[in-house]
Amino acid sequence: MFAMFGDLCHLCGHHGAGEADHLVPVAIDADQPIDPYGMRPAHGSSSPCPVCSRKCNQERGTGTIIAPLYTSQDW
């Protein structure tokens, strides 16, 4: 998964993600196969974000994924 998507956290948009976040949380579907296309890099308890200090994977929990807002201008 990291070879395909790098280390950019899909939740906060910062580099340095070290955990695999299941797009469908394991708590919802514990029998899902290990599929790199069904996971994305995220920061977690073992590798919090070096920029915003969030543990994105744990914060999301079993919630839905809300895409971050990317604009052409920094606010």
Rank of each mutant, 00 (worst) to 15 (best):
M1V: 07
M1A: 13
F2A: 03
F2D: 00
A3S: 11
F5C: 00
F5N: 00
D7N: 12
L8F: 13
L8M: 11
C9V: 05
H10F: 13
H10A: 15
L11W: 01
L11V: 13
L11N: 02
G13L: 09
G13W: 10
H14L: 01
H15M: 09
G16H: 06
G18C: 05
G18P: 01
G18S: 06
E19H: 14
A20V: 00
D21T: 03
D21Q: 10
D21N: 13
H22G: 11
H22F: 12
V24P: 03
V24M: 12
V24D: 12
P25Y: 10
A27F: 02
A27Q: 12
I28F: 01
D29E: 13
D31H: 12
Q32M: 14
Q32D: 11
Q32H: 11
I34M: 08
I34L: 12
I34Y: 13
D35T: 01
P36K: 07
Y37P: 00
G38Y: 00
M39N: 09
M39P: 02
R40S: 10
R40I: 08
R40N: 04
R40P: 01
P41E: 02
P41W: 11
P41N: 09
A42Y: 02
A42G: 06
G44D: 02
G44W: 01
S45H: 13
S45Q: 14
S46E: 09
S46D: 07
S47T: 14
S47K: 15
P48I: 00
P48N: 06
P48Y: 04
C49N: 06
P50V: 00
P50W: 07
P50M: 03
P50A: 05
P50Q: 04
V51N: 12
V51S: 13
C52S: 06
C52I: 03
C52Y: 03
S53F: 07
S53G: 05
R54E: 10
R54G: 07
R54N: 11
K55Y: 00
K55L: 03
N57T: 04
N57E: 08
N57V: 04
N57W: 01
Q58L: 10
Q58G: 02
G61N: 08
T64L: 14
T64A: 14
I66C: 08
P68W: 08
P68H: 07
L69H: 12
L69W: 10
Y70G: 00
Y70M: 04
Y70S: 03
Y70P: 00
T71P: 01
S72H: 14
Q73W: 11
Q73T: 15
D74Q: 13
D74K: 09
D74C: 05
D74T: 14
W75I: 14
W75V: 15
